[in-house]
Design a protein around this nucleic acid. Structure first.
Length: 469
RNA sequence: GGCCCGUUCGUCUAUCGGUUAGGACGCCAGGUUUUCAACCUGGAAAGACGAGUUCGAUUCUCGUACGGGCUGCCA
């Protein structure tokens, strides 16, 4: 069995779409799970719409998602000569012909066809005209598609799709300015790159039949096809800006971990029994083309967040720190990332269980990131009644006398609360306010352990001092 | 208009002719609890519609409806 080669072939127009990311992921999973290669080809043949920024976005998007590709990326535009060479061969072998029809003639044809209810596929009068009758004018090269029979696309997702050949038009291969058209370029590039499996969006399903015409004419082996259903917005309409984020970099900026994105995207349109939360290794192991669903899937942020939360909580502290700093660097700057790097690590163990994004993680670590004297917000202040402060006053000096362990701190906390005839809950609120200045934080004991004895006592002393004033 | 594809709880999905139609997210109720979260228990919730094939259809076939794609000298 020959090695598997897959590819992702995005066009660099705008940001990297989340659908492209999923297609890339599927290709990557398939190749990586089978010892194959995963290649990148940038389809930049549309000079009007292609931009260098968009190309950068593709590289960055793939890098962030951890979808590493093999070999050097291929830029389609740079291969124009090769595409022209093939078009010329097709012309010579009689599989293609020169068409001198003008744009006006074509649109007139189509208007008339539509008015009469006929097929609007253009039927060029030049298809069977002898060379000697060719005028000395601009022409395009069209493929000569068969008018009879049918083409069967053996698709791994959609199963066999039968299309009548008379539904296939004589598509343009080379424009009148001599530049190759996408439909030709993909086929030539896929062939030259040795692509064995074409896994791409559903929107290309019909195109596959057209492209097979070129494979056949060139006598090239047809790759295995797998056309993925599209990703829809939460309302079932095509995912667009109006639904919020469509570009992968936006998800990166929202603080979702790449591992969670991969997990969610893999699960969107593909399944492995009841497995919901899984690692890359498992996904590579399990991924099969025939387990891909046939219908379009809606994007669900809630599920994405849930999965991301699970991934964050399962990530080792050191790796999580690294990822969070990377996020902070992109979101803000090197300085704020640096500041984070010095304090975040010891707090991770207790906050990673409760964060769905890196942003939430940082937010929940706030107590360790702030410096004395800490600012106490309005809600937290409500907890600092006179009674509360006298409780804190009782507690504070005793903190010198316990070993700094969770057990002893808990025992002390209960003891002090009981002295005031209260349950610990009544002490926890004020303690939280004094230590973090907020009402929503990790457990007060975790905060004390992380802050350390000196800082804890100092923060409490700040409040005690204020209270006694 | 023509051709092609799709349709199971709100969402992602399992099921590959016989199931009390399963799981996950979300939602609701209860529990745990020092806040939030997490966690635990329970609950509501689905085969688009209509025919046909069959002893039996969510599963196979056809039609209808709805959604999507293609129909470019865009990709």
């Amino acid at each position: 069995m020959s090695a598997i080669v897959t590819r992702i072939a995005p066009s660099p127009t705008g940001s990297m779409h989340i659908g492209t990311a999923r297609t890339a992921l599927f290709n990557w999973l398939y190749a990586r799970g089978r010892g194959g290669k995963f290649l990148l080809r940038v389809e930049d043949t549309d000079k009007e719409r292609s931009t260098p920024e968009a190309t950068t976005a593709i590289f960055k998007g793939l890098e962030w998602l951890g979808l590493d590709f093999d070999d050097e990326p291929v830029f389609q535009a740079s291969r124009a000569e090769r595409h022209i060479e093939i078009a010329t061969q097709l012309l010579a072998s009689g599989h293609a012909y020169k068409c001198f029809s003008t744009q006006d003639e074509i649109s007139q044809f189509r208007d008339a066809a539509r008015a009469e209810g006929r097929s609007t596929l253009y039927q060029s009068p030049w298809r069977d005209i002898d060379h000697s009758a060719h005028p000395d004018e601009a022409y395009v090269i069209r493929i000569k598609s068969p008018n009879e029979g049918h083409t069967i696309i053996k698709d791994q997702v959609q199963r066999d799709v039968k299309i009548r050949n008379d539904q296939l038009d004589d598509m343009v291969l080379l424009r009148s300015d001599g530049s190759p058209v996408y439909m030709l370029a993909v086929v030539v590039d896929d062939y030259d790159m040795g692509i064995t499996h074409v896994i791409r969006g559903d929107d290309h399903l019909n195109n596959a039949a057209r492209q097979m015409l070129i494979y056949r004419a060139m006598n090239w082996p047809i790759p295995v096809y797998a056309h993925l259903p599209l990703i829809l917005g939460p309302d079932g309409k095509k995912l667009s800006k109006r639904h919020g984020a469509t570009g992968v970099e936006e998800y990166q900026l929202m603080g979702y971990p790449a591992s969670g994105m991969r997990n969610y995207l893999a699960r969107l349109g593909w399944s492995h029994g009841d497995d919901e939360f899984f690692s890359d290794e498992q996904a590579k192991d399990w991924f099969h083309l025939d387990a891909i669903g046939k219908s379009a899937a809606r994007f669900d942020f809630k599920k994405l967040e849930n999965l991301c939360g699970q991934h964050i909580s399962q990530t080792q502290d050191a790796a999580l720190l690294h990822e969070t700093l990377e996020y902070k660097r992109i979101k803000d700057d090197e300085d704020s990332a640096h500041k984070l790097s010095k304090r975040l690590l010891p707090a991770l163990y207790c906050i990673k269980q409760r964060a769905k994004t890196y942003g939430e993680l940082i937010e929940k670590a706030n107590f360790i990131l702030i410096d004395r004297p800490i600012k106490i917000d309005e809600k937290a202040k409500i907890n600092l009644s006179e009674d509360a402060i006298s409780m804190l006053n009782t507690l504070t000096p005793q903190l010198h006398n316990v070993s700094w362990s969770r057990e002893e701190l808990e025992a002390l906390g209960k003891f002090v609360a009981e002295k005031f005839d209260k349950n610990f809950g009544k002490l926890a609120g004020p303690l939280r306010a004094a230590l973090a200045g907020q009402t929503v934080t990790p457990s007060v004991f975790d905060m004390m352990l992380i802050l350390g004895r000196d800082e804890t006592i100092a923060r409490l002393a700040d409040v005690n001092a204020k209270g006694s004033n």
